[in-house]
């Protein structure tokens, strides 16, 4: 058994070596900001009542995350430790302002539908969290990949919620009617409680998949231990 565990340890060490593909994929699946880390719950619950809103929110967050992570990584050796959070907020707020004006220029309807949540990207804990936990300690390339992975993971999670809520709550996907006029809309799904129900259901699914995977990964070891005993 002891040799087994030490082998597992060395494997973990090997995996934690910086690997660009791993950095990118980590945010999409293994450390998904919504389904695994449960970060940024405010926009996740509030603006996922339709696919368009979810997509716009996801892309806006992705843009801000990518730009801020890049800039923070570039400036990581110049920002004094004592004022780093304030500096990150200034950097993030700059890009949020850009996004705010861009969305307002592209579509005023979308801007009104998203409401205060665009401005609130500035306090989204995913973005500040990645700046503090990753970008400030890594090189620019790695920080960019991390931002892309996390941003895409966040967007996909928003789409998962927005898709289910719009299909059930309105019978449409991206505004296109799926089931015809006779579909009975589940009005609870586009209301705030629906956000909690759908998020809970997705978390259930992800945790169930994770548990199954862990059990499968564990079972050969267990069998080995049993035969040794």
């Amino acid at each position: 058994m002891t040799t087994n565990t030490s082998a597992a340890h060395s494997e973990v060490k090997l995996k934690s070596q910086p690997d660009s593909m791993d950095t990118f994929l980590r945010g999409i699946w293994q450390d998904n900001p919504v389904f695994v880390m449960l970060l940024g719950m405010c926009p996740v619950l509030a603006v996922t009542n339709s696919v368009v809103n979810a997509l716009a929110m996801g892309i806006a967050s992705l843009f801000v995350l990518f730009c801020s992570n890049t800039l923070v990584a570039l400036l990581r050796n110049f920002i004094p430790k004592q004022v780093r959070i304030a500096s990150y907020i200034v950097i993030i707020a700059t890009f949020v302002t850009v996004v705010d004006y861009v969305i307002q220029a592209i579509s005023l309807d979308l801007y009104n539908a998203l409401g205060a949540f665009i401005q609130l990207i500035v306090v989204n804990c995913i973005i500040l969290g990645r700046a503090e936990a990753f970008a400030s300690k890594n090189k620019v390339g790695a920080a960019m990949l991390d931002a892309l992975g996390m941003g895409i993971g966040f967007t996909l999670a928003l789409l998962c919620l927005g898709g289910v809520r719009e299909i059930l709550g309105n019978g449409t996907f991206l505004g296109i009617s799926l089931f015809g006029e006779n579909f009975q809309a589940w009005s609870v799904m586009i209301l705030p409680p629906g956000g909690f129900f759908v998020l809970g259901a997705w978390l259930l699914l992800f945790n169930w998949l994770k548990e199954r995977k862990d059990m499968k990964a564990l079972s050969p070891d267990l069998q080995l231990a049993e035969t040794k005993n």
């Binding site: 009975q184 589940w186 009005s187 609870v188 799904m189 209301l191």
Partner: peptide, 10 residues
């Protein structure tokens, strides 16, 4: 309560 919220008309 769920169907009350989901199907308020029915």
């Amino acid at each position: 309560a769920f169907v009350q919220a989901a199907f308020p008309v029915a």
